[in-house]
């Protein structure tokens, strides 16, 4: 029998990195920047958090201050991913480099950066296994509300997650509101749709692109942090993050650039991502691999449907991927 009560929480924890990544990427793409560096940025966000937590755990010895144990890795993660976002913007907005090439390079760089420092930390701890465990810090990140357990299936499905999960949902809702109901959101959408028009209307294109991309990168970086600290219980091992970054980008398309739609869609993606664990497939590993294709298949189907419907609101921002230069003719 399919066990929904244990499936849904698993799908949700699986979905949170995707949701954060997708929210960040949506925000970025709304400014016309197609940041394919998101997988790398999430990776850097994760390792930056790990470095922060590692240094703090080393410095504090056995007694951790709960507030600092959360704040230091979080700030380290935000700083690391913000720097990645800044680098991307400097290359694509200021120097007008090709966005696809830059993004892919950032992903390669981010993964290499993460693996390098991950490997170094593992060497430093001198552990037997190729991973580094920060279970004390992780305990603070994954702490659920104390009364969640007493509420049965309700508590398990809705209240059993670490705080970053709720932050992720709140961020998606806030982004949605900002994009659709505020002046800033209107300006940002205009920048991504038609920068020449936004420019003529007196909107500072560079500032909006930088802000959206850097904030988007920071949100995506939190996805990496959540993955290490909550989902993986504080265990960092190189390359474990896998293809979640790409899945987040697929999710952006799946949600047709709507962060609020992302909340449920990411849970769907998370569910599809782990469905193979819940469907009896026996020992046949190739069937499992087929199940792992599901999120991508769904994305392709959505792409086909949304391009057939051809509604203007459902299209990507019009100048997505293009650099803007005012005096270009």
């Amino acid at each position: 029998m399919f066990d929904l009560v244990s499936f849904i929480p698993r799908a949700v924890v699986q979905s949170i990195p995707l949701l954060l990544g997708a929210t960040g990427e949506t925000l970025t793409e709304k400014s016309g920047n197609l940041n394919l560096g998101i997988p790398g940025i999430m990776y850097v966000g994760g390792i930056s958090g790990v470095i922060g937590a590692f240094l703090y755990e080393q410095a504090a010895g056995g007694s951790l201050n709960p507030f600092l144990a959360v704040a230091i890795p979080t700030l380290a993660c935000l700083l690391g991913s913000a720097l990645m976002g800044l680098l991307y913007c400097f290359l694509t907005v200021t120097l007008r480099a090709n966005q696809n090439v830059t993004g892919l390079a950032m992903t390669t760089f981010g993964v290499g950066f993460g693996n390098f420092f991950g490997g170094s930390l593992i060497k430093l701890t001198g552990s037997e296994v190729p991973s580094i465990a920060l279970s004390a810090t992780s305990g603070y990140f994954s702490a659920a509300l104390p009364f969640a357990d007493s509420l049965g299936w309700f508590g398990k499905i809705f209240l059993s997650y670490g705080f970053l999960a709720y932050v992720a949902i709140a961020l998606a809702l806030v982004c949605s509101y900002v994009l659709n109901h505020t002046r800033t959101g209107l300006h940002l959408r205009a920048v991504g749709e038609n920068p020449a028009t936004a420019d003529a209307a007196g909107i500072n294109i560079g500032r909006y692109k930088y802000a959206a991309t850097v904030i988007g990168s920071m949100i995506a970086g939190l996805g990496g942090l959540y993955y290490v600290m909550d989902y993986a219980c504080g265990v960092w091992s190189n390359d474990a993050f896998g293809d979640r970054g790409w899945l987040a980008i697929a999710l952006v398309i799946f949600t047709i650039w709507r962060p609020n739609v992302g909340i449920l869609s990411s849970i769907l993606f998370g569910g599809l991502y782990i469905l193979y664990l819940f469907v009896p497939t026996g020992m046949n590993l190739s069937v499992k691999e087929l199940y792992k294709m599901l999120p991508y298949l769904v994305t392709i189907v959505v792409l086909v449907i949304s391009s057939m419907r051809n509604k203007r609101e459902n299209q990507p921002p019009e100048s997505l991927g293009l650099a803007y230069f005012r005096e270009d003719r």
Binding site: T182, R183, L186, H187, R189, A190, E193, N194, A196, T197, A198, A200, A201, G202, I203, R312, E313, Q315, E318
Partner: peptide
């Protein structure tokens, strides 16, 4: 210089910094 997916009113207030919401 108009953004196609926005409404007339949204295009008209684009870039304005009026006080308030």
């Amino acid at each position: 210089k108009l953004v196609d997916v926005l409404t007339a009113a949204q295009n008209i207030v684009l870039g304005l910094k009026e006080p308030g919401r």
